[in-house]
């Protein structure tokens, strides 16, 4: 696989074209707005938490294929998880991309390992992690985050 093909893997391209949970949800209890001022990516993330479980999740906004597919796959993976589980997955994802992947809990990430190819494009790491930063902020009650 070329470097480009490692970046734009089929699963990423498919989620970009058909993002999951790409909508507002009815009764959000936690929300955050994430933006990457450098490239203009921006997403609103809303989560409904019931009994400590992420019972509903949705995102809206615009951005590149990497940020959108990352958001789409994030929503699939954390839906139905407890807040603690979601935060552990978030940590694993950020570790995978930020620190050479050393110590990332790969088992927790499953399909999300396709984002490993992003590391070869350092300036695109922010795109992949944007929604995860937003998730972290939403769960911790921070309303707006910016990757700069």
């Amino acid at each position: 696989m070329s470097r480009l093909e490692q970046l734009y893997q089929d699963m990423i391209l498919e989620h970009n074209k058909h993002p999951r949970h790409f909508e507002a949800i009815e009764n959000p209890t936690h929300t955050a707005f994430g933006k990457n001022p450098l490239c203009g990516d921006e997403y609103h993330l809303s989560v409904e938490i019931n009994d400590n479980v992420l019972s509903s999740i949705g995102f809206q906004g615009s951005g590149c294929a990497i940020s959108k597919s990352s958001a789409s796959m994030m929503t699939e993976l954390v839906l139905g998880k407890t807040v603690q589980e979601a935060l552990l997955i978030k940590d694993a994802f950020l570790t995978l991309l930020m620190q050479e992947g050393v110590g990332a809990d790969r088992a927790l990430l499953g399909k999300l390992m396709v984002f490993e190819g992003v590391k070869k494009y350092p300036i695109r790491v922010k795109c992949a992690t944007l929604i995860w930063r937003a998730l972290e902020a939403a769960l911790e009650g921070v309303v707006e985050i910016s990757t700069e």
Binding site: L4, L7, C39, G40, D41, C64, I66
Partner: peptide, 23 residues
């Protein structure tokens, strides 16, 4: 249509073409 400028920039870079993507 349907392609974010940042993705255009990355694909172009892969083809050895330096263009600007952004605001």
């Amino acid at each position: 249509d349907g392609v974010h400028p940042h993705d255009i920039g990355t694909v172009m870079d892969d083809l050895g073409i330096a263009i600007r993507a952004g605001h």
